[in-house]
Design a protein around this nucleic acid. Structure first.
Lengths: 221, 221, 221, 221
DNA sequence: CATGAATGAGAATTCATTCAT
DNA sequence: AATGAATGAATTCTCATTCAT
């Protein structure tokens, strides 16, 4: 798995203008290029993808890309800091709509799978390039990671208070356990060709998180 | 998560010779280069690493590498088909030493974590480059993946027969669930700097697999 | 040394309009851009300077520059044919205010140093780019060069008639000798940071031109 | 004028190996490329010249240049620190073969003109690119410059002691006066097409340095 | 077998110039 | 006239791969 956590409290949504010089007309071109890039990165991998490919996919000239992005790495950076930020914001919102821990987790997972299903290219690039710490500010990535894990942690703590979640485990491990499984499920979906309904995996997955695969010894009795 | 399954029944062990021209004594040079490459790939990433760096790390000339490997990609291919093959063979052996499903799974996970802990460079490259399917024959990777998942499947089926594992789940999902968690745990260990004892995570992890995080309503009764 | 001679008899002063499309009011914009360009060229060098930098310095849009100048090289061409032309016209005028050869040379040198001191950017660009014959019509530059040398020649001839200047030398060499020294003095002033009073060098320099550094053997007698 | 002074005490002659990776066979290739580069730079100017042009002129592939030089600027740097260094060493040697100030100056000028005549491309590049402080370490260039001026200064001081040179002038100005004239003479020779015998200018030039262009009023009497 | 200098295709990036608004 | 976004040719530099020694 590549990215663990993701989420941002950030209130400032339109960071876009920061690096984009052209102010007047088409701010679309920024997104045009960003989306084209993500598509190409998804197909080729960030490294193998060339600016020319991205330009062609975006329907602009090579040089145009440098009007909207500092350089190739900056495209990836914008993907993480802008595109995924929006997604992770939604995760937190989604969680807040539920009351109890189990529902919160279910909402989170459902939304997680849902957002990636909506934008498979994003999913691919995210899974693959995210922790490739080399390209983007490592600290920045760790931040998003931590935030996602923090949402889970809050849910765990609440669940323990509510009596629906065990207390005899290492929280750090459980967080990986949860995140790892979702990611693997997403990855498989991506690798096998984005065919089936990803969101449908949410409920069975949460069921597994809670009940495990074992048959309760209680029943033995 | 990057690689899902890995394991090879392959009886033909010395496939190495297939593409390596040198037959005589220094078959060491093959391993010399392979290990150096893995080290460099772990540090730089496959793409960023150069043949010169690998050559220098291996203590050979650039040209020498092409005596033992077809090209740069072939080094990675050999890493997967030779180096990891040995590891995944051991997984199966390990599993066979146990009798019951739960013990088999525990052995598998323990060994999995153990092998990666023993060779962190391998772990890094594996986690990062494995499903970067672009470099290696995708089908081949899927094969290894499938084999690992097959071991798990066998364990699940056995467990269900033995009555220790539930039957009401999608086997495909459970396999990802198990594999994803291990991989995430390994990844975290890699990303945070290979500091703590990875194998110690095995038992708590298997405990989670079996019991989940929930408190069984049954016990209420 | 870079530029040797410069001076223009040209009666047609407003050649400017030739290539500049805009005819109406803002002929200022032409100068605005020209001066900004000289400043930027002085700081960056002609080649390294970009049209964008010039535009920004001139407070106009990039495209606007192409309304007043054919292309980048044309800016430099205009610098030489318009801006320096005015300066070199003044040289000749200045020379004419004196009667005797020695005073004429003194006036020329004084004015030469004075004009460059007044406009250091012009000095820098002139010294650096002038004979970079590649950018501007070489013949044209040679013309300006020749005119400056011609002023000197006239002075020399007059001096010889007046009996104040030797006759036993190659005029061509003497002209370079005179021009080279002034230019070197200007260059040093430019390179060391435009700090001291350049015009103050005129009298000592002319003194050296006339008397040389040697002690006259005559005095031995 | 471009470069003022040049000269190096350096005893270490073979600095070449420092940046050239290839050690074995052809150290010629270093010079092959360097000379080709100087030729191309002389024709095109450093900026306008492309690596491809240099490579073609040197009869090697583009990439080969980067085996011997860090980058384009490094070629120019090597030109100054290696190629011209040798020349300026000779200047000092030449000066030392004479006893009296006037002979020393004559030797210096003769040699200066001679070396540039021998290698016109070097002359062109030197004159044009030398003080283009932008490309090469400014301090370094200032050093060479200062050394040349220092040779002149030593000669001046000696001449004053010997009674052959006046004492009533600013040494700084005289140094520019001498250097400027030589350079202008070289420049003219370069610009007019490298046709006539440059060295033949040495004696008349030194004559002008010493006697100036004036007719000494003393003799009137 | 081993070497490492040479190669040249390929990639990122820059910037003069154009043109629709 | 003025603008500045868009263009794409051109340039520097990298690096996998080859091959003469």
């Amino acid at each position: 798995m590549r990215i663990h956590s993701f989420f941002l409290h950030t209130t400032a949504r339109c960071v876009i203008k920061d690096q984009a010089k052209p102010s007047r007309s088409n701010n679309d071109k920024y997104h045009q290029i960003l989306n084209a890039a993500i598509k190409v990165f998804a197909e080729q991998g960030y490294h193998k993808a060339t600016i020319s490919q991205v330009a062609k996919a975006a329907g602009v000239a090579d040089g145009t890309i440098y009007i909207y992005f500092k350089n190739k790495a900056d495209i990836l950076f914008n993907f993480f800091s802008y595109k995924t930020r929006r997604v992770f914001d939604r995760f937190k919102e989604e969680v807040e709509t539920a009351e109890h821990a189990e529902d919160k987790l279910r909402n989170l997972i459902r939304r997680h799978l849902g957002e990636f299903q909506r934008d498979p290219n994003m999913a691919v690039v995210f899974q693959r390039e995210a922790l490739q710490a080399r390209y983007i500010d490592e600290a920045y990535i760790k931040d998003i990671t931590k935030m996602y894990l923090d949402i889970i942690e809050d849910i765990l703590v609440q669940g323990q208070k509510e009596g629906s979640i065990r207390k005899d485990f290492q929280p750090g491990l459980v967080k990986r356990f949860i995140l790892g499984a979702v990611n693997e499920v997403i990855n498989t979906w991506v690798v096998t060709g984005i065919k089936y309904d990803l969101v449908a995996m949410a409920d069975p997955l949460v069921d597994l998180y809670f009940k495990g695969i074992g048959i309760k010894p209680v029943q033995v009795r």
